[in-house]
């Protein structure tokens, strides 16, 4: 009995040490990527190439999901609000939910599973097929040539995707409530404009999505670069990217929300 308890405690300790070690390893890699970003800035073509894969190819899922999330918000919000006779506030509800929370968070979750996993798989496979080693042998640093451009492309495209998501959502809500249900168009926009504040809501939402972009792409490039160079290693790393970036997005969102909107209802 005592022996079992001891081994269970040892197990916990082992996991904690392992986790901390990995976290430290990841942080060191993150700083390394930042230090070696010079090439990405000097040769911006590299980042543009990656922007195509992380940004442009994520557009469809972002646009469609944004539209539908906005439509559902409009429908549900209208159903609930009309019970209290305040269906005019539906624009406010849609816009505030999207701009403050759903836009940055849902866009980041989609981004993690669409672009983050692709980044991990690509870097992991380049490692497994010795492409990164070959690059090192050609005296080209793989971190500055392969990792940093992908990192920056993610950091740039995330806030843009989140903004596109929110706008699509607002128009999705407009479509359902104004066009289909018949809420007054002027009320929809004016209620929204009087409630959504540029600095508190839009700017904070934008800052949130910047944080998410850094977090998701940092996790994705680290997992790819750190993946064991085997088929299972790369698939495991891809899964870990999606799981851990989703958890980090939600955790980070709570922390950021607590800081940004504290004392402001």
């Amino acid at each position: 009995m005592f022996r079992h308890a001891l081994s269970a405690i040892q197990n916990i300790g082992h996991r904690v040490i392992e986790g901390m070690w990995r976290l430290g390893h990841a942080s060191r890699f993150f700083i390394l990527v930042l230090l070696k970003s010079g090439t990405s800035l000097r040769r911006f073509g590299l980042v543009i190439r990656e922007l195509y894969f992380t940004g442009v190819l994520s557009l469809i899922i972002i646009v469609v999901s944004g539209l539908f999330v906005g439509m559902v918000l409009g429908l549900q919000g209208y159903e609930t609000l009309q019970k209290y006779g305040s269906e005019s506030a539906v624009g406010t509800l849609v816009a505030l939910s999207l701009v403050r929370e759903l836009g940055p968070v849902v866009a980041a979750l989609l981004f993690a599973s669409r672009a983050g996993s692709a980044i991990t798989a690509e870097i992991g496979l380049m490692k497994a097929t010795e492409q990164l080693a070959a690059m090192g042998m050609m005296a080209v640093d793989p971190v500055s040539r392969v990792v940093a451009p992908r990192f920056w492309s993610g950091v740039i495209s995330m806030p843009l995707l989140a903004a596109i998501f929110s706008v699509m959502g607002v128009y999705g809500g407009y479509l359902v409530t104004v066009v289909f249900i018949g809420v007054d168009e002027g009320t929809y926009w004016s209620q929204m404009q009087s409630a959504v504040d540029f600095r508190f809501d839009i700017l904070n939402g934008f800052i949130k999505s910047c944080f998410f972009g850094v977090a998701v792409t940092a996790i994705a490039v680290f997992e790819g670069y750190d993946a064991p160079p085997t088929a299972e290693g790369v698939s495991g790393a891809t899964t870990r990217t999606v799981v851990s970036s989703s958890l980090v997005i939600l955790g980070l969102d709570f922390i950021l929300t607590a800081f940004m909107f504290r004392g402001v209802s």
Binding site: L125, M126, T129, E130, Q131, A133, A134, M135, M137, M138
Partner: peptide, 11 residues
């Protein structure tokens, strides 16, 4: 220069 086992071309 180094030639890797399966070439390691940039895919």
């Amino acid at each position: 220069g180094m030639l890797f086992q399966f070439g390691a071309l940039f895919t």
